Structures are given as C-alpha cells and as structure tokens.
Amino acid sequence: RSMKLKEKTEWLWQKYHFTPRKDLGQHFLIDPLILDRIVKSLHLKMHDEVLEIGAGTGTLTERLAQEKIRLLAVEVDQDLYQILKEELKDYPNVKIICEDISQFSLEEQFKGPFKVVGNLPYQIASSLLLDLVKRENVGLLVVMVQREVAERLLSPPGCKKRGILTVLMQHYALIEKIIDAPSHAFIPPPRVASSLLRIERRKIHSSEEDQVIFRVVKAAFSSRRRMLINALSGALKKDKNFLRKKLEEAGIDEELRAEDLVDEDFLKLSRVLREEVYEKKD
C-alpha cells in the first residue's frame, strides 16, 4: 500500500501486460499532491454520487472508493476496464463501465445530482464540458484538461483566445484553476502541460433563454475579425440599421468584436434580439 504511485502504476502495467495507447492519449497521474487536491476540491459528503471519466488504472478511483460515496467510473479501454474490475472488486460502492463517455447515456445512471471528476481526453474535452455543464443535475466538475483548453476557458474579455466555448461555459458556470500539472506529473509524460479546473454550475437557467444566448454568441463569433454589427448582420441575415438600433438599446458599441464583450453584454444582446433568434416549438 505504501508503494509510490509511479511504481504502483508500472507494477499494474506489468502484472496485466498493459501498454499505454497513444491513440487514446493515455497518461496516468502519479503525483500524490495533485491527487489530494482533486479529492479535496470535490468537497465530498456521504452518499454523494460521482462520475469519474477515464478511470485508467484506478489511482483516483481507489482513493474515491474509500470515501462513503457512490462512484461510477467510466473507462473506454477494454484492457484497463479488466484491471479496474479486478483491482476494485472489494468496493461495493463502485460501478465500472467500459464505454466511450461521449456515447454514454448519463440519464440512465444518475437520477439525482452528481459530481464529475477526471482527466479529460483532449479531443473531446470542449464538447464534453459544454454538454455536462448544461445538465441541471451536474453541480460540480473537477477536471484535468490540457493547458490550452484551460486558457481558453479562463480567457477574459479582450483576449484572443476567447471564443464561443469560453462565453458559453462562463455563462453556465464559475470556472477557476486549482493548480497547473506539469508533464512529469504523469506517465508516460504528455508533450503538453495540463491544468486542474474547478467548474461550479450556476443555478439559474431556462432552456428558452439558453437557446437564444447560444445562437447570439455563435452569430457574434461567426467572423472573428469583423466588428460586432457586421458579424451579427452576416450570421443572422439582418439589416444593419435594424441591428444598430438593437445594439443601442442594449448599450453595446457596434464597433467592438465578440471577444471584447463580457457575459452581461451577451445577456443584454440576447434580450433585445430574442424575437429574432428564438425558434418557437410548435
């Protein structure tokens, strides 16, 4: 039990004849301090329900299993799934599923509120986070993402890295960086560094308002280098004079670019353009 995480991970690889797969971007956390920060940041209470994405060799899974929670660990790799099933068989509060998280039906597994934790694969991190944060029963996410994704999610108004993902994620949630994780915190070490984020969902949402905001944000960012009025006019197929009035009404300078707007600006813009972009369901 006192074996270091790196040794333990390598020992499991040997025991089960496992080789990390490049195509799945498999990198395993071996830094005990970061592991502690992850567990602490989840603020676990008895009977919490937790979803772990990409359980790997079960380093975090086992730590979480020792808390009095219900844990659902999802792992796409069949070989790792076998390791997890064997190594964690003594924990009745842990359920392990071999599946691709982006194809996975969370509705069937979680009826009430749940928390999310995991080291997110780069290819699907953005779309997965947006999907999760839109769900009313997800309260808190503590996730490891590539530094580049973290920078996009945290980028302030005026920053070139700010985009649709940034604005929508910041609309749904409060995002903060807990800690940066250097490459050597993992084996095999990835080429890029990662960051651990805490994402707490805001409580207030109506799906109708969300639909409007989504379309307005998309339209505003549709041509990044153009002024707001031109981007909106092109994407929403609306007359500039009409949009000029609407922007004035919202108190927003038409010559700004989408990345310059704060969340509140997008809310104001969505209110004045609501009639134009909301598609009513018959």
Rank of each mutant, 00 (worst) to 15 (best):
E136W: 09
E276Y: 11
D100N: 11
L129G: 03
L132D: 02
L44G: 10
L60F: 13
S2D: 14
L174S: 15
L141N: 01
E176I: 05
H184K: 14
L72T: 05
Q170M: 00
V277D: 08
K268T: 00
V76M: 09
S126W: 05
D239T: 02
R201S: 03
S126I: 04
V217Q: 06
L12F: 13
L132T: 01
L130D: 05
G56C: 10
V262R: 15
D131L: 04
S2V: 11
G251A: 01
V216E: 06
F242Q: 08
D282T: 04
L29N: 13
S126V: 08
F186T: 03
L132K: 03
Q78C: 00
D260I: 01
I204M: 15
H27Y: 09
E49Y: 13
D36K: 12
G234A: 14
L247N: 00
E209G: 09
H205T: 09
A55G: 11
S233L: 03
A185W: 08
N230Y: 07
I175C: 07
V216T: 04
H205L: 15
I179A: 12
L140D: 03
G163T: 01
S223M: 11
G158A: 10
R257S: 01
D265N: 15
G234Y: 07
R244A: 05
I213Q: 04
L72H: 07
R135Q: 12
L153S: 02
F214W: 15
G56I: 02
G25Q: 04
Y91Q: 04
D131P: 03
Q14W: 12
F214T: 14
R191H: 14
Y278I: 02
S207T: 13
R271F: 12
D180P: 01
V138E: 00
D210V: 05
K45P: 05
K280I: 03
L196G: 04
E279I: 11
A185F: 12
E248Y: 08
R70V: 02
V116G: 02
L247D: 06
V192C: 09
S105W: 14
T57K: 10
D48F: 07
L33C: 07
S155H: 06
E264M: 03
A150L: 12
G25N: 01
G234D: 12
V216Q: 10
S207C: 06
S155D: 12
S183W: 12
Q170T: 00
R21N: 11
R21I: 00
E254T: 00
L197M: 05
R224A: 04
K245T: 05
E208D: 13
E136G: 13
E107R: 13
E49C: 04
L228R: 09
K237C: 04
L106E: 09
V116F: 08
E275F: 10
R21K: 13
G56E: 05
M3G: 06
L64F: 05
A235V: 03
L80R: 03
L196K: 11
K246C: 01
I53N: 11
T9H: 08
H171D: 07
L273C: 03
R135F: 11
S207H: 14
Y81G: 07
Y91T: 01
D23S: 13
V212H: 12
P32Y: 06
R147W: 11
L232W: 05
D263M: 09
V50R: 08
D131S: 14
R224T: 03
V117L: 00
S127D: 12
L33I: 10
F110M: 02
E7F: 09
M144K: 03
E276D: 13
